[in-house]
Amino acid sequence: MLLTDGNHSTRATFTLLGFSEYPDLQIPLFLVFLTIYTVTVVGNLGMIMIIRVSPQLHSPMYFFLSHLSFVDFCYSTTVTPKLLENLVVEDRTISFVGCILQFFLACILAVSETFMLAVMAYDRFVAVCNPLLYKAVMSQKLCASLVAGPYTWGIVSSLILTYFLLTLSFCGSNIINNFVCEHSVIVSVSCSDPYISQMLCFAIAIFNEVSSLVIILTTYIFIFVTVIKMPSAGGRQKAFSTCASHLTAITIFHGTVLFLYCVPNSKNSWLIVKVGSLFYTVVIPMLNPLIYSLRNKDVKESVRKLINHSIQLFPSHLQREHDPFSTLASGF
């Protein structure tokens, strides 16, 4: 099962316990998570498609939102299929390479989402505080750079953490008491000293969380001050409505992250950690497109126009197919 070459594990197999301690709930949980994953895929890919085909959504705000939807789709797809598989099969093992790859991809996407939300906060800051200069400031070049930043830092962070995970050795029972290969559970089954890897993970996590929150809080302080100074109630309401969806997404995302940081390190906390991780990796990617579609007038209007356009095209197409007079007339 395990071969070691010095301090390096050349082959290892892990067992993801997931929610196996609740055998009677395996099928119900499978159906629930399958439904969530379906909504996630349809919601995020649908959001990307709507933004691409709707001219009124071709603005920096929706450009960033399309990338947030892409990150959410990829994040859920990295984690959920393996979770669903382990709920219906007895063999819950995952190879060392598969586990490390899942962590590598999930880390990239988690870090990317953290800073994508911060980028979207800056976009709202420019839109509310400098509306006349919005198009000039948020140029295509700047938008591309702001999107490239979170992806680049996500890859760098993941490469650093993954490299130090690969230096660890694994021996004995490699049972992971979770449904996903997170950094903390991987190092918990290592038989070598994980101190450096743990400290690096802690430092990077703290840097990501603090820096992104500082950006978000700073931008929203300026937004709040600007909105309060607006003379008209209608202007204030419009400004708050443009930020409402983003604030909701930020609150859910960072609230869950901070909650996981506060969970005590004890045996009884494993279930809390698993539920928190489940919300973080599976539920939030489903919620984001729902938040932005249900609370955003532009998105709802674009969806309505697309549906009406499809309805108008469909009957006229059927009428041309089944109207014998139009067929006869086309022959003259």
Rank of each mutant, 00 (worst) to 15 (best):
M1Y: 12
L2Y: 10
N7L: 12
S9L: 13
T10C: 12
T13S: 12
Y22R: 11
Q26R: 15
L29N: 00
T35G: 07
V41F: 02
G46Y: 00
G46N: 02
M47H: 06
I50D: 04
I51R: 02
L57H: 08
M61Q: 14
M61T: 14
F63S: 14
F63A: 13
F63K: 14
L68H: 01
F70V: 08
C74G: 03
T77N: 05
P81Q: 03
N86T: 05
L87S: 02
L87K: 01
V89Y: 06
I94N: 09
V97H: 12
G98L: 02
I100E: 02
V111Y: 06
S112Y: 03
T114A: 01
F115K: 00
F115N: 01
V119G: 03
D123N: 15
R124H: 07
V126T: 07
A127W: 01
C129D: 04
N130V: 10
N130H: 15
P131D: 02
P131C: 02
L132H: 13
Y134P: 03
A136W: 10
V137I: 15
L146N: 04
G149Q: 09
G149N: 09
T152W: 01
T152G: 03
T152L: 07
W153H: 08
S157Y: 04
L159M: 14
I160V: 12
T162Y: 02
L165A: 05
L166Q: 12
L166K: 06
T167K: 10
N174A: 05
I175V: 11
N177G: 08
S184Q: 06
V185K: 09
S188W: 01
S190R: 02
S192D: 01
C201L: 05
F202C: 07
I204M: 05
F207W: 07
N208K: 04
N208G: 02
E209M: 14
S211M: 06
V214T: 11
T218L: 10
T218F: 10
I221F: 15
T226V: 04
T226Q: 10
K229C: 08
S232Y: 12
S232F: 12
Q237T: 14
A239S: 14
F240V: 09
F240Y: 12
C243M: 10
A244G: 07
S245K: 07
A249N: 11
V257R: 08
F259C: 04
C262N: 04
C262H: 05
V263G: 01
S269P: 02
W270T: 14
G276F: 02
L278W: 09
V282Q: 10
I291F: 11
Y292M: 06
K300G: 15
V303L: 13
K305S: 15
L306Q: 12
I307F: 07
N308Q: 13
S310K: 09
L313R: 13
H317W: 11
L318M: 10
E321W: 05
E321G: 03
E321I: 05
H322Q: 09
T327K: 15
G331W: 11
